[in-house]
Simulated scan of single mutants.
Amino acid sequence: MHINPDHYLETDSGRVFTSERNQIAWAKCFHDFENEVINNSSVQIVYVLIGCQASGKSTWADKKIKEEPYNIVFDAILVKKVERASILRITTQKNLQCIAVLFKTDLAICLERNAKRTIDKIVNQQALKNVFAAIEAPCLNEGFTSIILVGE
Score class of each variant (00 low, 15 high):
V131T: 14
I3S: 04
F144A: 01
T118D: 12
R15L: 11
A25V: 06
N39A: 03
A27Q: 12
V73A: 10
G151L: 08
T11F: 04
E10G: 04
C98P: 03
M1Y: 10
I135M: 08
K81D: 08
E136H: 02
H7W: 13
A137E: 09
R21S: 14
K81N: 13
G14K: 06
C139Q: 07
D106P: 12
K116D: 03
A134T: 11
G143A: 01
L111M: 06
H31Q: 15
I77L: 11
C29K: 02
Q53M: 13
A85F: 11
V46P: 00
V37D: 01
I72Q: 06
V79G: 00
V43Q: 02
R117L: 00
G51S: 06
K28Q: 12
I147A: 03
I148Q: 08
L49A: 09
F33Q: 10
C52K: 13
E10W: 13
I99N: 02
Y8F: 13
V46K: 01
A127G: 09
E36A: 09
E152Y: 11
L149Q: 10
K66A: 14
I72L: 11
N95I: 09
I87V: 14
S86E: 14
N141R: 03
L102M: 08
A61G: 06
R84A: 02
L128I: 12
S146P: 12
I65T: 09
E112I: 08
G143E: 00
W60P: 03
T91F: 03
L78P: 01
L9F: 15
F144V: 03
T59Q: 06
F17M: 08
K64N: 13
I99P: 05
G56V: 04
Q44H: 14
R89N: 13
W60C: 02
W26P: 05
S13T: 13
T11H: 05
W26H: 15
I135Y: 07
E10P: 09
N22L: 15
H31W: 12
I90N: 15
A127M: 14
F74W: 14
N95Q: 15
V101G: 00
A27Y: 02
V150P: 07
L149S: 09
I77Y: 10
A54G: 02
V82N: 12
Q93K: 15
T59L: 09
A115I: 11
L111I: 08
L111W: 03
E20R: 07
Q53D: 08
N40P: 00
N40K: 07
